[in-house]
Amino acid sequence: MTTFNRRSFLQFTAACGAAVGGVSLAAPAVFAKPEPLKLKFGNDLPDSHSVNVRLREAIAAISAETDGALDISLFPNNQLGSDPDMMSQLRSGALELATMPGTVLSTILPITALTGVGFAFTSYDKVWAAMDGAVGDLIRSNLVKANLVGFDKVWDNGFRQITSSTRPIREPGDLAGFKIRVPLVPLWVSMFSAFGASPVSIPLAEAYSALQTKIADGQENPLALIYTAKFFEVQKYCSLTNHAWDGFWLLASGKVWKSVPDDLKQVMAKHFNAAAIKQRSDIVKANQTLQADLEAKGLVFNTTNAEVFQQALAKTSFYKDARAKFGDEAWNLLQKFAGPVG
């Protein structure tokens, strides 16, 4: 990878100009423009997802402000592999940038799943106060241990809902024996197991086919992803459970980040963080219309009582086990923003 510091380059060319000042030359000196710093950016989201829409805008703005010094190529929809594949590439430096759900990161750093505890957050006000505050700082400080650098603003993955091809999920008992596709996330496997469901851990890229072939009866995701992944084609019901919230961390490879000039880091941070704020608003606006859009596609919706589900979960060992896993300090910090959990 070619790296350079633009300030040093400009100082060098200015010095050269001063050195030849007053000397008549037959032709002006021409200096080659440095090679751009090329970075690959991967994620597992569909091309049309709001994250990728806003990333493209940010990447264009970064290129414009750096006069092409940064050349970032976006690879959505698992083009560079599954989340675990891309995580491995990030840590080794083979991939420079990615967005990754906190719960997926938890396979290597358990603390990153803290915000995905079942029925913890009940509103976006609580979510963003936590993520833009002490909870986000705690997780970000732990990312360094995995040779990852987390940008300041977390992107929105949204509150998660359950879809099904067999029956609506109206109450906790409806989950008994239910084959549900979940990400490769131990926390959510434990949660659905506690409800008596049969969770099946399958990467997002394989989720549609798993539902189509009945490997799983249902799945759980935010409405935006249910729409962009076209799960409505292979599902009949959508139950608004709001059972968990998760965000996308925008990550840089720690190994690569050290070699990026500070001025270019600042430009990336400015535009990526601004794009994250816009994408959060995108999800809020989309949620106002997505239910109607999905109903038009054939999904049948029902509401649920989150308190009833949380009470049922509290009768199991789920919250006790989660607290032991995260530790009292992290658990108390979560409750500071989310309120009493479990």
Rank of each mutant, 00 (worst) to 15 (best):
G254H: 04
L74Y: 02
G339I: 05
Q212K: 12
D125I: 00
T304V: 10
D152K: 09
D132Y: 02
L175T: 02
F151V: 07
L148P: 06
V51S: 12
P84A: 11
G102T: 05
S141A: 15
N273G: 03
N305Y: 10
A146K: 15
A244I: 04
D156G: 01
N52L: 02
G342C: 06
F318I: 07
G339F: 03
E295N: 14
A296E: 03
S201I: 11
S281T: 14
T66P: 14
D125S: 07
L105T: 08
Y227K: 08
I169A: 08
S63K: 15
M87N: 15
L90D: 13
S8T: 12
G102S: 09
T316D: 15
N332W: 08
L251Y: 06
A324S: 05
F121G: 00
Q161I: 04
T115Q: 03
N273T: 04
G102L: 06
M86Y: 13
E57Q: 13
K38A: 12
L211Y: 10
H271R: 11
A292H: 12
N77R: 02
Y237G: 03
K145V: 00
P168Q: 03
R280N: 03
R140E: 11
A322C: 09
L223F: 00
S281V: 12
R323G: 06
V30E: 12
I180M: 05
L143G: 08
R91P: 13
P34C: 06
G342F: 04
D67R: 13
N287K: 04
P186T: 11
G136K: 01
K285F: 15
N273C: 08
G136M: 02
E96A: 15
D321C: 05
A275T: 01
F192P: 12
A306T: 13
V267N: 06
E295S: 15
S259P: 10
I59W: 11
A244S: 09
S239L: 09
N77H: 05
G17S: 07
A322K: 14
T303H: 11
D132A: 02
Q11K: 07
G298F: 03
L74V: 05
V185L: 00
L114T: 04
K270H: 14
K297Q: 05
K325D: 11
K255M: 03
S201L: 09
A61G: 11
L290T: 06
A269K: 10
S8D: 10
G196I: 08
S50H: 02
F31W: 10
A216M: 12
I169P: 04
R181G: 13
M100K: 12
P46K: 10
F178D: 11
S198E: 11
G81R: 05
N287V: 10
Y237Q: 06
G298V: 08
N77M: 01
N221F: 10
L138Q: 07
C16D: 13
A205D: 10
F337G: 02
F4Y: 15
